[in-house]
Design a protein around this nucleic acid. Structure first.
Length: 604
RNA sequence: GCCUCCAUAGCUCAGCUGGAUAGAGCACCGGUUUUCUAAACCGUAGGUCACAGGUUCGAAUCCUGUUGGGGGUACCA
């Protein structure tokens, strides 16, 4: 039997034959056919004997007997008719079944030890994941880090589930916010460059964005002192007017402005490249808003022709979504220029034309829930066949104890600083434990990087994407317990053990006669890996995978402490078997953490 | 106002299509190292699952309402 055929849900994956046999039992005992869906089969809780539990309450309607009587009757039938069922016990309406060790050993030998266990099986489908999508006016902060790690991980998760995946980055490289940085640099930069200042390019540009804001505020205050209202002052401040002029010049293709824009964006891209490399994220294709911002007008014409959109007297174009419980939405300004959603309509078409994907995931914060709801609905109304494959992977904001991060108030957690701190903390903790005394310098640096980033990535990915996430800069991210380093440590320990035992890569099958309790638990948990992967992929949730990997590492550590030292085991058959369990565990941890973007070291 | 998401231990989080006595980690307290890495393991303690109804043999989970919090509701992105 192939495992894939056995997997039917995440929770209990290998028990199709129990389902079939139970349906037979009901037919034989009560002369009635039941649907598979009325059966409730789950893992037996640890405090009871057995591995599989059938909840018999739903069947009592058919049996017309008490839950206990029904459970007993079915239990007797299963023991008599299903070879793998060796015993049963009944607790209230719960029928607990014991499955023969030989069944689990077969599963282990045939499935878990096979080379393609947990490997992707191509499903012939293409999916695009758009993530990161930064503005080029300031460096990345912790919110972007969550986006990047989530997007990367979801893309890897979909690959592992058999999709062909395209990662794309839509860079917001134009607009008024970029002009603010440019203008401030022109006025107060004195020609400062990353080379002259030693500042990372994105930080340098971000510095001028902040300067702009500071000077702009001064002007607003001055105008308010002259009696203007807040709104008037914001519109009338000379700096903002100048920035708007610059944007117009940019759109007109003014050479000087374009040159400055290219120069400063170049600095930012150099800076981002470093951050992306440190985060370990990558992209198959970049889209730039400077190339896409004019798109979408064709789509607007198309919508007008189809009667999906309508034009108001002033020339602005709208769609009426009130019948769908939403509002009227502007899709083109009265002056004929694009708004955000105009571009997104065009960009969506462009992406589809480029890749022809079956699904497209937008990794964007939940503040844009409404926008994507409207965007997808419009594309559907326009009759785009691919619209149903669009999905907004909406994630919660990263908050500080003080609330939202605000770049202007200096309360942002900078991505580069955070990465550096994580690596430094990893270094200190590792050296305090004396773990790297015999490491070469280059190996030390690599290890501290892997541990620091492992801690950070796991911390951010273990939380359900849609939940908001609290980060306290005053409390360092843990390295113990439910953490990345815990999983990394477990893996390193197994690798060390395998090396000491001279474990050969051409694994022999496990030939043991029976299983210890923890061995059985390990096999059951490891066997769930493919189902866990596919379930996490369907939910676009690296958190599911992260929590599963933690369970595996935790159970392995228990196993490690409970069984006597494997390296010194004299019974070769037992030794081989336990090494096999170790090997599969290490493989699952390594493959699983890779999907989270986490590297597991061989030693730590 | 309207829409939407969230609320589980002191803190950070799991809890899957409704199932048995709601689970981890951190912090706290106690124990484990002549045994393969103690970033580990074992144990104690910690809960009115925001609140109130409802559906059900059975609700943290589904439905309705209330409260509290986040986000949205721009010819911004």
């Amino acid at each position: 039997m192939f495992l894939s055929a056995l997997v039917f849900n995440r929770y209990f994956c290998f028990m199709n034959f129990i389902t079939t046999a139970t349906i037979d039992a009901v037919k034989q005992l009560y002369n009635q056919s039941i649907e598979e869906s009325v059966l409730n089969i789950q893992e037996t809780r640890k405090e009871f004997e057995g591995q599989v539990t059938i909840v018999v309450f739903p069947i009592t309607k058919i049996s017309k007997q008490s839950p206990e009587q029904t459970a007993t009757a079915i239990g007797e039938y299963l023991v008599a008719n299903v070879a793998e069922v060796t015993a049963f016990n009944v607790v209230k309406g719960f029928l607990n079944l014991s499955i023969a060790d030989s069944y689990w050993l077969n599963l282990f030998n045939n499935e878990l030890l096979s080379d393609d266990f947990g490997k992707p099986k191509p499903n012939g489908k293409k999916v695009m994941v758009e993530y990161s999508s930064p503005n080029t006016n300031k460096p990345l902060h912790l919110g972007h880090v969550r986006n990047n790690l989530l997007g990367y991980s979801v893309a890897e998760l979909l690959k592992a589930d058999g999709y062909e995946v395209f990662k794309v980055n839509l860079v917001n490289d134009r607009g008024i916010h970029i002009c603010k940085s440019m203008l401030a640099w022109e006025k107060w930069g004195n020609g400062e460059t990353p080379e002259s200042s030693g500042l990372k390019g994105d930080h340098l540009v971000g510095k001028y964005y902040v300067i702009f804001d500071k000077e702009y505020k001064k002007e607003i205050d001055a105008l308010k002192a002259e009696g203007q209202t807040e709104d008037e002052a914001k519109k009338n401040a000379p700096l903002i007017k100048e920035a708007q002029q610059m944007l117009l010049a940019w759109e007109a293709g003014d050479k000087e402005v374009i040159d400055l824009w290219k120069k400063m964006n170049g600095w930012v891209y150099d800076g981002f490249a470093v951050s992306y490399k440190n985060l370990g994220v990558d992209f198959d294709k970049y889209y730039y808003e400077s190339n896409t911002y004019l798109l979408g007008k064709d789509t607007v014409d198309e919508g007008l022709a189809k009667g999906v959109f309508f034009k108001k007297e002033d020339g602005s174009v709208w769609i009426d979504l009130t019948a769908d419980g939403l509002d009227q939405k502007l899709v083109l300004r009265a002056d004929g220029t694009s708004v955000y959603i105009t571009q997104d309509l065009g960009t969506a078409q462009m992406k589809y034309d480029d890749f022809g994907m079956d699904q497209s995931i937008y990794v964007v914060g939940n503040e844009q829930d409404y926008h994507f709801k409207v965007l997808f609905l419009i594309l559907e109304k326009l009759g785009k066949s691919w619209a149903k494959g669009l999905h907004h992977l909406s994630y919660g904001m990263v908050d500080l104890p003080s609330g939202k991060m605000k770049s202007r108030e200096g309360t942002v957690v900078d991505a580069d600083d955070l990465i550096a701190e994580m690596i430094e903390t990893a270094k200190q903790k590792t050296e305090a434990l004396g773990k790297t005394n015999d490491f070469a310098e280059a190996d030390k640096a690599e290890l501290y990087y892997n541990i620091g980033l492992g801690a950070l990535k796991y911390f951010l990915l273990k939380v359900e994407p849609k939940k908001r996430l609290l980060f306290d800069p005053n409390e360092s991210i843990d390295f113990q317990g439910n953490t990345g380093p815990f999983i990394q440590y477990t893996h390193a320990r197994i690798k060390s053990l395998l090396a000491k035992a001279n474990f050969q890569l051409d694994v022999k099958q496990s030939e043991v006669a029976g299983l210890e309790a923890t061995e059985l638990e390990m096999i059951m948990l490891l066997a769930k890996y493919p189902a866990e992967l596919s379930n996490a992929a369907k939910a676009y949730s690296p958190a599911f995978l992260a929590n599963y990997l933690y369970e595996v590492a935790k159970l392995f550590n228990k196993f490690y402490h409970e069984v006597p030292p494997i390296v010194k085991e004299e019974n070769q058959v037992v030794k081989e078997h336990r090494l096999n369990i170790c090997k599969v565990t290490a493989d699952v941890l390594k493959a699983g953490t890779a999907i989270l973007g986490i590297n597991v070291p061989e030693r730590m």
